[in-house]
Nucleic acid binder design. Structure first.
Length: 510
RNA sequence: GCCCCCAUAGCUCAGUUGGUUAGAGCGCCUGACUUUUAAUCAGGGCGUCACAGGUUCGAGUCCUGUUGGGGGCACCA
């Protein structure tokens, strides 16, 4: 039974058969490339003082993305990761080899050897002396002019997006440079980069739902980490005074424009620092990276100019909520009174929510959207911050800040709680809140971590930065999917090993 | 998890108040062409209108369900 697009595939297969019949390997193992496309273009300007000299020998390779045939002469544009270059192929130069063009298609990889030249119209070209097929494409590429627009296909088949939409390469290159710049930043300040476990017995260190898995030999349930925090602090206990990790963490929660179930988190910890030191670190780090990657400490995010240069203003959470929501949190010390006040002001709130969650709602609704230019929101209520040390000046608040830009949270930091007994009671409180407020994400008791703290942890400043969001901010992307090469999508193929026939028909019964 | 929107050729998109045989550009196939630039010229439409039902004399179009995607809410970073 004919499939959709069958004819296109069949044509390519026929060409493959013809090539094989002529003894041509459609997938040869190697090709000696002497120049990338960009280097080949540069080779044309290799004369004294950058003067243009034709005739340099080059061997270039790439995917054939356009083809213009005039009968006994043809122009093919090939593309590699750096750019593209035109091949000028003539029958009287290539002889019988010219016929190979009949069996090439857009999307094929080819290698060509020849000399650099400019055509009559001024186009930099390789005058080809010999060329070979390097890999046959059995499926057609997306349309050459409009590119691939279908977002579903762009994410599911990212390679087509990369072939078709050049700007995706640029975003991903920026992402890579951002991560490199972060490493350089911490490395140069004497931090040690470390790796901590992804598979953990207790999914603690943040308030989130975990992915659950099972280890057969140990016969016990394990979790994918939701944060790296508690392991990094164990290293601080062990005397590694400055550590950081850039790692994937996993949260079993919703997927939307700024949430992916797995995302990249930077965490750093520094002994003898506090959250004020970390604020200075963040307001130095972010503009430095932006400058490194874009050449400027100002970025345009969705039409808004963001000035990332330090210093960033500090706004206390208490003050922010008073200013933007019109509520003085200190007047409402418990969940019930706060919920009552919120309802009175017409803010959606119920008595089934914890005080921390109510405050989070107030901040998320009234304060965060106002924080367009980079701002530190400081001193979070203790009940929202089970891993942060309480302020000596006011024990209702913790020495914690979050950094916002474009209304988006980009960093979270505290002066770390290092008193094991208080940490235990904070964890216990979280476990109790979990029982009382079902459905809320809360942190979990980690006994091994308490034991570590009992061995003594120096005063420490810690930091967490969502790398994907930082990349969004710096590259101007409004969806996290556009800074991830392979964002999570609902898979259409059945899991391996499930008893479903190859024709893939599963019918969920009614 | 809830609400709204979307799905037509390999790709990008049209498709009228339900009305003949489903439309265009690119791509593809055949032919012409030895300096083209989204090459051009002549010819060719290549389709399970996401899937399954329903209404109707008649469905790409209307209704229901399903799948996938997008946006919003909720949750989180």
């Amino acid at each position: 039974m004919p499939q959709r697009g069958d004819e296109l595939l069949r044509n390519r297969r026929l060409k493959l058969e013809r090539l094989l019949a002529r003894g041509i390997d459609p997938f040869p193992p190697r090709f000696n490339r002497s120049h990338t496309t960009a280097q080949a273009v540069a080779a044309l300007a290799a004369g004294p003082g950058g003067a243009e000299v034709e005739g340099s020998e080059v061997s270039v390779a790439g995917r054939m993305i356009r083809m213009r045939s005039m009968g006994k002469a043809s122009f093919a544009d090939i593309e590699d990761s750096e750019g593209n270059i035109q091949l000028f192929l003539r029958k009287n130069t290539l002889g019988d080899e010219y016929a190979l063009l009949d069996d090439l298609d857009l999307g094929d990889f080819v290698g060509a050897t020849g000399t650099m030249m400019r055509t009559r119209t001024g186009e930099v070209s390789v005058q080809v002396q010999t060329f070979t097929l390097l890999a046959k494409a059995l499926r057609p590429p997306p349309e050459k002019f409009h590119g691939l627009r279908d977002v579903e296909q762009r994410y599911r088949q990212r390679y087509l997006d990369l072939i078709s939409n050049r700007e995706v390469h640029e975003t991903m290159r920026s992402r890579s440079r951002i991560v490199s710049a972060i490493r350089a930043f911490f490395d140069s300040r004497g931090y040690l980069e470390v790796d901590t476990p992804v598979l953990v017995p207790v999914p603690a260190g943040a308030m989130a739902q975990p992915f659950i898995t099972h280890h057969n030999a140990l016969d016990r349930q394990l979790y994918l980490r939701i944060a790296t925090e508690l392991y990094l602090k164990r290293l601080i206990v062990g005397g590694m005074d400055k550590v950081y990790e850039i790692g994937r963490v996993f949260r079993n929660e919703g997927i939307d424009a700024d949430h992916n179930p797995e995302f990249t988190l930077l965490e750093s910890y520094e002994a003898y620092a506090d959250y004020n030191d970390i604020m200075r670190l963040v307001e130095t780090l972010v503009p430095e990276i932006a400058s490194e990657v874009t050449g400027s400490t100002t970025v345009i995010y969705q039409g808004t100019e963001l000035r990332l240069a330090s210093p960033w203003p500090r706004l206390s959470l208490h003050e922010g909520v008073k200013q933007y929501a019109g509520i003085d949190l200190n007047d409402y010390p418990d969940a019930a009174s706060l919920a009552g006040k919120m309802q009175e002001l017409g803010v959606p709130a119920t008595y089934a929510e914890s005080r921390g969650r109510l405050i989070d709602k107030l901040v998320g609704t009234y304060v965060e959207p106002k924080l367009i230019q980079p701002t530190f929101l400081v001193d979070y209520p203790v009940e929202m911050s089970p891993l942060a040390k309480a302020s000596p000046a006011d024990s209702r608040y913790a020495e914690r800040f979050e950094a916002f830009a474009a209304g988006m949270e980009i960093a979270n930091s505290f002066t770390e709680l290092n008193d094991p007994d208080i940490q235990r009671s904070r964890f216990t409180e979280q476990e109790e809140l979990r029982k009382r407020y079902q459905g809320e994400d809360l942190d979990r008791m980690d006994e091994d971590f308490i034991t570590a703290l009992e061995h003594g942890m120096p005063p420490t400043g810690g930091l967490g930065v969502g790398i994907d969001r930082l990349v969004m901010l710096i590259t101007g992307q409004s969806s996290i999917r556009d800074v991830l090469l392979f964002p999570q999508t609902r898979s259409t193929q059945p899991p391996p090993g499930t008893d479903q026939n190859q024709e893939n028909e599963q019918v969920p019964e009614a």
